[in-house]
Amino acid sequence: MRHKPFLLALASAAMLAAPQQAKTADDAPQASSETLLPRAIDAQYSGYLLGIKVLNASLDARLSGGEYESDALFETAGLVRWFKKAEIEAEVEGEMDRSYPKPKNYRHMNAAGSKDRTIEITFTGDDVISDVNPRFGSMGQPPATREERLEAVDALSAILQMALNANRHADRPCGYDARVFDGKQRYDLRMIYEGDYEAKLKGYKGPVTSCNVYYIPVSGFDPEDLPDEDMENTPLRVWFADTPSYGVSMPVRFELQLDFGKAVIEIRDLDIAMGDSLAGADALD
């Protein structure tokens, strides 16, 4: 299975248990119309493979007046960049339904030499339309149906959904599962609570909620893209900062055990703006 940058798609993990229905905003407990949400989020990450730096990433979001916009950047770093220069940019805009993002327009640009590709996804309400250039050789076997696309969000909105709902519901510390459509593939991200810990990271020191995230293919996959048995039983472990008073619990560490070692992405700098105040990493210690 080809691994995607797992901060953007959170798609490097696979399912553990028998399939179950992923819940969405319509299934979640009703929240007050005055649901606490941050005004702005700025997060910087570094990624390591076998202890060697291989990735820089950033994730920003702005929420105001019931609307949101977010963008992310991923680029190879360190020695890896000498051999393989790759960048992925993503951006999305949409509306907020309580603490759940509802995307309208998503754009994804993958610059990796001869494999440059742009994906644009439009969520019309009646359908979800993807415009891919250059086109995929296949839309999967079987391709995602209209109904499957309509129940999903883009990968960037899925990350924001997880961050805004972790630690929000007492009976669901990790929030609810996310349904994702990336322009071709339709998959679920299942959230399983793992435990609570104290983190001492460069960009965050404090309590975290640890969640195992399982990657569940639904449709739009070619046979060679499906996870093998090992990946089906290997979750992506994500630490969410336990900071519900800020209206968001940002992921501060991603950890995936691979056959040849461990891949890790950790927060390097985190700023959360609430109203007119800015809470930086020091304030979140």
Rank of each mutant, 00 (worst) to 15 (best):
H3Y: 15
F6Y: 09
L8V: 07
S12H: 07
L16C: 06
P19H: 10
A22Q: 01
T24Q: 11
A25V: 10
D26M: 10
D27Q: 04
A28H: 01
P29S: 12
T35S: 09
P38V: 09
I41S: 09
I41C: 14
I41N: 10
D42G: 13
Q44P: 02
Y48N: 14
G51Q: 11
K53P: 00
L55W: 05
N56Q: 09
A61V: 12
R62Y: 05
R62Q: 06
S64W: 03
E67N: 14
E69Y: 03
E69V: 00
T76F: 04
G78W: 04
L79C: 05
K85V: 02
A90G: 05
E95T: 08
M96R: 00
R98M: 15
R98Y: 12
S99A: 15
Y100C: 15
K102Y: 01
P103I: 08
K104W: 00
N105D: 13
Y106S: 09
A111P: 00
G113E: 14
I119K: 00
T124M: 05
D126A: 14
F136G: 04
M139I: 07
G140F: 06
A144V: 01
A144N: 06
T145M: 10
R146I: 11
E148S: 06
E151S: 13
A152T: 13
A152F: 02
D154Q: 04
A155R: 00
I159A: 05
L164S: 07
N165C: 01
H169K: 03
C174I: 00
D177G: 02
A178F: 00
V180P: 00
K184Q: 12
R186S: 13
R186D: 03
L189K: 01
M191L: 08
E194D: 13
E194N: 14
A199F: 07
K200A: 15
G203F: 07
C211F: 03
Y215L: 03
P217H: 08
G220K: 06
P223W: 05
E224C: 02
D228F: 12
D230C: 06
N233D: 15
N233G: 10
N233C: 12
R237N: 08
W239T: 03
T243K: 08
S249Y: 01
P251I: 08
R253G: 05
D259S: 15
D259H: 09
G261L: 10
G261I: 09
I265F: 12
I267R: 05
R268C: 08
R268L: 08
D269Q: 10
L270A: 09
I272E: 11
I272M: 12
G275F: 05
L278F: 02
A283Q: 08
